[in-house]
């Protein structure tokens, strides 16, 4: 009941259709990372598919379908991260930093724009600060003010961290 209420307020509490983890074995060796989409509700929306250059986000039979991913085709390019109107796409690269570090590519639409090299707060799905991360790169793939910020984070927290906040 409490978990239901949490989910009903916009917090992902478990894997669901449209919100699943990539297969671990492939994920661990895939350079540049794989996409995680957290879109568990059927809504009329498909830009994750139409923006995907490799066909990894599979075609929608019905525009209301939740996204399905062909991980073998995902290159971690993060075009969907910047296009998704729900900011529900994230890329996680587990190959980035050895045993303890991973790289996350997160959508960002706030000010100020983080600077490369800066240490930022990493927030979980409820906005709690769970660690610090270091900004590696800041991209604007569609030149439309939705940034994709590459942050190095503790590998153990890649399924918790979903946003960053610039530390003033």
């Amino acid at each position: 009941m409490e978990m239901d209420m949490l989910f009903n307020s916009g917090i992902l509490t478990e894997e669901r259709p449209g919100a699943i983890k990539p297969p671990q074995e492939l994920w661990e060796k895939k350079q540049n990372g794989l996409v995680i989409i957290e879109c568990p509700q059927r809504i009329p929306c498909n830009p994750c598919h139409t923006s995907c250059p490799t066909g990894a986000v599979m075609p929608f039979e019905d525009i209301n379908d939740t996204p399905r991913i062909d991980y073998a085709k995902c290159t971690g390019c993060a075009m969907c991260v910047a296009k998704c109107p729900g900011l529900a796409c994230f890329v996680v690269d587990l190959t980035y930093g050895g045993a303890d570090e991973a790289l996350m590519k997160l959508p960002y639409e706030m000010l100020p724009v983080p600077e490369v090299g800066a240490v930022v707060d990493c927030l979980d799905r409820t906005g709690e600060v769970v660690s610090q991360g270091k900004v590696v790169r800041v991209m604007e793939p569609w030149k439309d003010k939705t940034l994709v910020v590459h942050v190095s984070v503790p590998k153990a927290l890649v399924m918790d961290i979903r946003a960053i906040r610039v530390v003033k």
Partner: peptide, 13 residues
């Protein structure tokens, strides 16, 4: 939409 709620929640709202 659930994803709009998730956007707000991760900003601490």
């Amino acid at each position: 939409y659930w994803v709009h709620a998730a956007k707000d929640r991760r900003l601490g709202i």
